[in-house]
Design a protein around this nucleic acid. Structure first.
Length: 642
RNA sequence: GCUCACGUAGCUCAGGUGGUAGAGCGCAUCCUUGGUAAGGAUGAGGUCACCGGUUCGAAUCCGGUCGUGAGCUCCA
């Protein structure tokens, strides 16, 4: 074979005999230290194994262990190691499906009659460790597709056969790991010795190819890192997420509950949760009023005909609850608020002079969610949207969207979210309206994002049937994303409801409608807030701001007085005047994550003061009751960005 | 909805192979009156999710219902 030229990045090209492997080439081009960190490479931008022979002039880029690419390869390879371990332990009767790397680890899907249980994990992990100790090489080979199909068919690997039959290529690659051969594109680690720091996490059902009509497989999830420190860090992260679980904290802090008797996905707000919610709602209403919105209230049910007109029965019926009959007329529970706002719009003849009309409502809607999708506050069947609809002329669209975006980010920021990803979803296949009007609306959304200096990701074809939309996914303290805000342009409903306004030309025109929700739903938003703050809420929306703790029974009367005074001053205060030791009361207040503990003993009683203990254990000097109330008021104003 | 697991006092959980229930926390009463993360004693709480079956006998075994949890696009 003739010589080829091999080059790393801008480095010097070297001439090597054709057929030289990547590993051999790197020996010529990299220091030993660099080579040790290299587990694969890209050759002319295609990811390859170190064992791959080079047959043409190549630009090589080593993939080294501190990169995301390397981690992905490690995870993918580890899934193969797990599959091999499972096969060794449970025999060839277990059929393998797919085993990719995913965001924080990997999984492999198996078909097996017996269920795996987490108790099996220890054995599988042990076997995996044994495989790692053998430093088994991942041996790549190519074979004609037909041959591969025949071979996998013989082994009864029906999933592999199906995958192969759909591959539009002549030649496929397979990897051999000991006695386990798997169809795989690669690349893989050079050998299994890298697979040291892993952990199997859970097992769950998954459909073959995500299709619920097809086989149910067992999916084992795991994670792996190049070093123990990173693995520990990730496991701690999972622990931390568990501690912040809003369902646990919601119970501990007595915020909300769900009851079998009442029904799944239906939230009961306990007093403290209701207080928290009220504070959010009040802030939201004030802020909307300040930004030119009017508030509406609308009913929970409407005649079925309304939902025919709106198109919900055509496009949304599977999410709606079946109707009820009232005086022989059919009614249905609302899944959205928009038709009601249109009802308000149509209560009067509208002029262009009124525009833009901005109407907001905390509207409670009901939607059918699959039983398996329900999750605490984050996925429910009855929830309150912080909804608003804006009716405007086309020439007002740009400004309105910009203003919404501005208010949106302002409100999120006040709640402590300033990190987010923004998505712009464009026209889906099944949709209404002309191309022109879609283009206009989409460009209005784009323009607003540009004007606000916000980067965004285009989600092609993911718009709603009636118009394009902007979605904002906020990131919490742990870096997890939550979809809350959405801004949607709609030219369908104005048409369906024959909405009009009188223009300056004294003729009738069609308004444009914008739907938007900032927090998404109160339920979900509170759930996200709980996890974001781990239940340690900022003073301004902490359901309880202060708790009075007396030292002995001698200060009970004084405690009652402090309580009355602070409550009258608008401080959300509780009293713990029980006959218990101070340590005990402090512990309980601390676990209740209450911002201020007001300690009163004989000194405070004599001076008319309270000693303030903070959540971090520090004390403020004693202060007058009225001074404490003023301090709380000030801090709340600051918290609300006033 | 589907797969698997789970459902015992208000909460967190124990209860090999069937013989009618237990702990800690919380709650109540009493003792104690103690200055910065759990003082002590006594006591009240349970149709063992619900319905049915097997059995002399079921929290325990079987079936069903309800509920909860994990997961169900991410290219071999």
């Amino acid at each position: 074979m003739t010589d080829i030229s091999v080059q790393i990045a801008d480095g010097e090209a070297v001439r090597l005999p054709g057929g030289t492997t990547v590993r051999e080439a790197l020996e010529k081009l990299l220091s030993g230290k660099q080579r040790k960190r290299t587990i694969a490479a890209t050759a002319n931008d295609a990811a390859v194994d170190l064992s791959r022979p080079l047959t043409e002039d190549t630009k090589l880029k080593p993939i080294q262990i501190d990169t995301p690419e390397a981690l992905e390869i490690l995870r993918h390879s580890t899934s193969h190691v797990m599959a091999q371990a499972v096969r060794q332990l449970f025999g060839p009767g277990v059929k393998v499906a797919i085993g990719p790397a995913i965001e924080n680890g990997f999984y492999y899907d198996f078909l097996r009659d017996e269920p795996f249980s987490p108790d099996d994990f220890a054995a599988i992990e042990q076997r995996m460790a044994a495989i790692a100790d053998q430093a088994l090489p991942f041996i790549r080979s190519e074979q004609p597709r037909d041959e591969a199909i025949a071979s996998f068919r013989e082994q009864g690997e029906k999933y592999k056969v199906e995958l192969l039959e759909e591959l539009p290529v002549e030649t496929v690659s397979v990897y051999q790991l000991g006695d386990f051969v798997d169809l795989c594109r690669g690349p893989h680690l050079p050998d299994t010795s890298w697979v040291k720091h892993f952990k199997l996490l859970r097992v769950a059902g998954a459909y073959w190819r995500g299709d619920e009509k097809r086989d149910v497989l067992q999916r084992i999830y795991g994670t792996v890192f190049f070093d123990q420190k990173a693995l520990s860090k990730h496991l701690n992260h999972l622990e931390e997420a568990k501690k912040r679980d809003h369902r646990r904290l919601g119970k501990e802090l007595q915020l909300f509950t769900v009851s079998d008797q009442i029904g799944p996905g239906l939230i009961l707000w306990q007093p403290k949760g209701a207080q928290l919610r009220r504070l959010i709602e009040d802030y939201w209403k004030d802020e909307h009023y300040r930004h030119g919105y009017e508030l509406l209230y609308t009913p929970h049910i409407a005649r079925q005909d309304l939902w025919k007109t709106s198109g919900h029965l055509d496009f949304y019926a599977e999410n709606m609850y079946s109707g009820m009959e009232i005086d022989e007329v059919k009614y249905q529970l609302k899944p959205m608020n928009c038709p009601f706002h249109i009802g308000v719009y149509k209560s009067d003849k509208r002029s262009y002079r009124e525009f833009p009309i901005r109407w907001a409502e905390l509207g409670t809607v009901y939607r059918y969610e699959r039983a398996g999708a329900l999750h605490g506050l984050l996925r429910v069947r009855g929830f309150t949207q912080d909804d608003a609809h804006i009716f405007c002329r086309e020439d007002q669209l740009d400004d309105e969207i910009f203003n919404i975006l501005d208010l949106n980010l302002h409100i999120l920021k006040t709640f402590g979210f300033s990190d987010y990803d923004i998505y712009l979803s464009t026209r889906p296949e099944k949709s209404v309206g002309s191309d022109d009007i879609w283009d206009n609306a989409t460009s209005a959304l784009k323009k607003a994002l540009d004007k606000a200096g916000l980067g965004f990701i285009v989600d092609p074809g993911e718009g709603v049937f009636y118009g394009p939309k902007i979605d904002i996914k906020i990131k919490d303290q742990l870096g997890r994303s939550w979809q809350c805000s959405t801004i949607q342009v709609d030219f369908n409903l104005p048409e369906r409801f024959d909405m009009t306004y009188t223009g300056s030309d004294n003729s009738e025109h069609r308004p444009i409608m914008i739907h938007r929700a900032l927090m998404g739903s109160l339920e979900r938003f509170v759930g996200v807030l709980i996890e974001h703050y781990a239940g340690v809420f900022p003073l301004w929306f902490a359901p309880v701001q202060a708790r009075i703790l007396n030292i002995t029974d001698d200060q009970v009367d004084y405690g009652e007085r402090v309580y009355d005074e602070l409550r009258k001053a608008g401080v959300r205060v509780e009293k713990d005047l029980r006959n218990e030791k101070l340590n005990y009361k402090i512990r309980e207040a601390q676990l209740g994550k209450i911002p201020y503990m007001l300690i009163i003993g004989d000194k405070e009683k004599a001076d008319g003061t309270v000693t303030v203990r903070l959540r971090d254990g520090k004390n403020l000097p004693p202060m007058k009751i009225s001074d404490f109330a003023a301090k709380v008021t000030d801090e709340c104003r600051a918290g609300r960005g006033l």
